[in-house]
Measured scan of single mutants.
Amino acid sequence: YWITCCPTCDVDINTWVPFYSTELNKPAMIYCSHGDGHWVHAQCMDLAERTLIHLSAGSNKYYCNEHVEIARALHTP
């Protein structure tokens, strides 16, 4: 949970406070499906809480801010 998930990541173990109602003692993470995949903080991706809950409940693929354009290009005929 205490990783630098992207170039603009500002989640710090020493200063972090809950942002989403689902967070208690660690930041919400979401899995990016690009390549071998990697974890990113939901807050760093500017996800709305409703979107985070929807993604967490389903089996939808998610692409982080850095990889979403690549994913779109691969799926565009």
Score class of each variant (00 low, 15 high):
Ile53Asn: 15
His54Arg: 10
Trp16Gln: 00
Ala73Pro: 13
Tyr1Pro: 00
Trp39Lys: 05
Ala71His: 06
Tyr63Glu: 09
Cys32Ala: 00
Glu49Gln: 11
Leu52Thr: 07
Val68Thr: 04
Ala73Val: 05
Glu66Tyr: 06
Pro18Val: 01
Asp46Gly: 11
Arg72Ala: 15
Asn60Lys: 08
Val40Glu: 01
Ile70Phe: 12
Cys44Ile: 00
Pro7Lys: 14
Tyr62Pro: 01
Asn25Ser: 10
His75Leu: 11
Asn65Leu: 12
Ala42Arg: 03
Val68Trp: 09
Tyr31Asn: 04
Glu66His: 05
Arg72Cys: 07
Leu24Phe: 03
Glu66Ile: 07
Ile30Leu: 15
Val68Tyr: 04
Asp12Leu: 04
Asn65Lys: 10
Ile70Asp: 15
Trp2Asn: 15
Glu69Cys: 03
Gly35Ala: 07
Arg72Met: 09
Glu23Val: 00
Glu66Arg: 08
Gly37Trp: 00
Ala57Asn: 14
His34Val: 08
Gly58Cys: 10
Asp10Thr: 13
Ala57Trp: 05
His67Ile: 00
Ser33Trp: 09
Tyr20Asp: 02
Lys61Thr: 10
Asn65Met: 08
Tyr31Pro: 05
Thr76His: 07
Leu52Arg: 03
Thr76Ser: 10
Leu52Ser: 05
Tyr1Glu: 10
Pro27Val: 01
Ile3Arg: 11
Ala71Phe: 05
His38Lys: 00
Ser56Ala: 14
Asp36Val: 06
Thr22His: 15
Met45Leu: 04
Glu66Thr: 10
Cys44Met: 00
Arg50Glu: 13
Val11Asp: 01
Leu24Trp: 04
Ala71Asp: 11
Glu66Val: 09
Glu69Pro: 15
Tyr1Asp: 08
Ile53Phe: 11
Val11Asn: 01
Thr15Ile: 09
Ile70His: 06
Asn25Pro: 01
Thr8Arg: 06
Arg50Asn: 05
His34Leu: 09
Ile70Gln: 11
Asp36Tyr: 04
Ile3Pro: 02
Thr15Gly: 14
Asp46Cys: 13
Thr76Arg: 09
Thr4Phe: 09
Trp2Gly: 03
Cys32Pro: 00
Val68Met: 09
Ala71Arg: 13
His67Thr: 05
Gly58Arg: 07
Ser59Ile: 15
Asp46Gln: 14
Ala48Cys: 10
Cys44Tyr: 00
Ser56Leu: 10
Glu69Asp: 14
Ala28Leu: 09
Gly35Lys: 13
Thr22Ser: 15
Ile53Glu: 06
Asn60Ala: 12
Thr8Gly: 05
Trp39Gly: 02
Cys64Met: 00
Tyr1Arg: 02
Leu52Glu: 05
Asn25Glu: 15
Ala71Val: 12
Val40Tyr: 01
His34Ile: 05
Asn65Trp: 13
Thr22Glu: 11
Pro18Met: 02
Ser56Asn: 06
Asp10Leu: 15
His54Ala: 12
Cys44Val: 00
His75Cys: 07
Cys9Gln: 06
Arg72Phe: 08
Ala28Val: 07
Trp2Lys: 07
Trp39Tyr: 13
Asn25Ala: 08
Arg72Glu: 10
Asp46Lys: 15
Ala28Lys: 08
Ile3Lys: 11
His54Phe: 02
Thr8Ala: 03
His75Pro: 08
Tyr62Asp: 02
Gly58Asn: 03
Ser59Met: 10
Ser33Asp: 13
Pro77Ser: 03
Asn65Cys: 07
Lys26Val: 09
Leu47Phe: 07
Ala48Phe: 07
Tyr1Thr: 09
Gly37Thr: 00
Trp39His: 07
Asn25Arg: 10
Ala73Gln: 12
His67Arg: 05
Met29Arg: 14
Ala73Ser: 09
Tyr63Trp: 15
Asn65Ser: 14
Val68Leu: 09
Leu47Lys: 02
Gly58Thr: 06
Tyr63Ser: 06
Pro7Asp: 12
Ala73Cys: 15
Ala48His: 05
Leu55His: 14
Thr8Ser: 15
Phe19Glu: 06
Ile53Cys: 10
Met29Glu: 03
Val17Met: 08
Met45Pro: 00
Tyr62Ala: 04
Trp2Asp: 05
Ser56Trp: 09
Ser59Lys: 14
Leu24Arg: 08
His67Asp: 03
Thr76Asp: 05
Tyr1Ile: 04
Pro18Gly: 03
His75Ser: 10
Arg50Ile: 14
Asp46Thr: 14
Met45Phe: 05
Met29Gly: 03
Tyr1Trp: 06
Phe19Lys: 08
Thr4Ser: 11
Ile53His: 09
Ala57Thr: 08
Thr15Ala: 03
His67Phe: 02
Thr4Lys: 10
Ser33Tyr: 12
Ser33Glu: 13
Val11Arg: 01
Tyr20Pro: 03
Tyr1Lys: 03
Gly58Glu: 13
Trp16Pro: 02
Asn14Met: 12
Ile70Ala: 13
Lys61Asp: 02
Asn60Glu: 14
